[in-house]
Simulated scan of single mutants.
Amino acid sequence: MASLPATSPLASLRLRSPSEWDWIRCLDVALALAALAFILPLLLLVAVAIRSTSKGPVLFIHKRIGRNGEVFGCCKFRTMQVDADRRLAELLERDPQARDEWQGSQKLRKDPRITAIGHFLRRSSIDELPQLYNVLNGTMSWVGPRPIVHSEITRYGHHFSHYCQVRPGITGLWQVSGRSNTSYRRRVAMDVVYIRRRTMMLNGMIMARTLPAVLLQRGSC
């Protein structure tokens, strides 16, 4: 059979073989669908509990920064009061210790914004289960840096370009390495390490460490 002339447009076409990250995307979707089918009764139970214990919607859709710096709606079960911003501003204004804690990690161990059931949902990480929808629509992955808000970009500094290279994850190196028990600076460092060294094997290791971290509530608040 004669070969195509070198000048033929078809001569430059090549079938792109699936990369490691194509396979990871396929696994993301398959695992998300399987997980949703398995935990659907739990999701419905949590939704009923939220609606019956506090005013407001079941889900909280927050603007986050994703891959390539694009903004997307990150889905979570609502764990805060509807006037959470006002409560936070009042606390930071009157409590220097809380203000220092917030500036250091963007977290508060005693957070007045959180509902009664919200504490349980956060400690158990059940509040993050709706992010399976984000995995399905391609704005998140199972493993990656935690999605950040716009005000956190400056904390990443020149490492923000690393953050933008991958999809944010439901779990990641930071989540299985102390989570809220670590400083924000160390969180950024772990995100950079993951992004530079990411492989399917590393993803598998992080996924394997996620369940024990959740069950033992390491670094949760």
Rank of each mutant, 00 (worst) to 15 (best):
F60I: 00
S52L: 12
R67D: 02
V71K: 15
A49M: 12
L43P: 12
A35P: 15
F72T: 05
T53V: 04
L40W: 09
C74P: 13
G73W: 03
R25N: 09
I39V: 15
A49Q: 05
G66Q: 02
T79Y: 13
S19F: 00
F38M: 13
L33W: 07
T53N: 08
A47F: 10
S19I: 00
L36C: 10
L27G: 14
D28C: 11
F72L: 03
V48H: 05
A35S: 13
S17F: 00
L27C: 15
K55T: 10
T53K: 06
A47K: 07
W21L: 03
S54V: 04
I50Y: 11
H62Q: 15
E70G: 01
V29E: 02
V46P: 15
R64L: 03
G69L: 06
F77M: 08
D22P: 14
S17I: 00
R51E: 01
V48T: 04
C75H: 15
T79I: 05
S54Q: 01
L44N: 10
I61G: 11
W21C: 01
L31T: 09
I61P: 09
I50K: 04
R67T: 01
L36W: 06
R78K: 12
L40M: 14
F77K: 04
V58W: 09
G66I: 03
A49C: 10
L33I: 06
A34Y: 04
A32K: 13
N68T: 01
L42Y: 03
C75W: 10
G69I: 03
R25A: 14
G69A: 05
T79M: 02
L40F: 11
A49E: 03
A47S: 15
R78G: 10
R51I: 00
I24F: 09
C75S: 10
V29Q: 12
K76W: 00
T79A: 10
F60Y: 10
A49N: 05
R64I: 03
A32M: 06
P41V: 03
T53L: 05
E70D: 07
G69M: 02
F38I: 08
L45Q: 01
L40Y: 08
I61N: 11
P18C: 06
F72K: 11
I39C: 14
N68M: 08
A34V: 13
E20T: 11
K76S: 07
S17P: 14
L31D: 06
K55A: 12
C26L: 09
W21G: 02
F60C: 02
L45N: 07
W21V: 00
A30D: 04
F38D: 00
A32H: 13
D22T: 07
W21Y: 05
R67N: 05
A47D: 09
I50V: 11
I39L: 08
G66Y: 00
R67S: 13
D22Y: 09
C26D: 01
L42K: 06
R64D: 01
W23E: 01
W21M: 05
F38K: 07
F60A: 02
K76G: 02
K63Y: 01
E70A: 05
P41N: 11
I24G: 10
C74M: 13
S54T: 07
I39A: 03
N68P: 06
L42D: 00
V58P: 15
L31I: 04
D22S: 12
A47Q: 08
A32W: 08
E70H: 12
F77P: 14
A37G: 15
S54L: 08
L27V: 08
L42A: 13
V29F: 12
F77V: 01
I24M: 10
I65A: 03
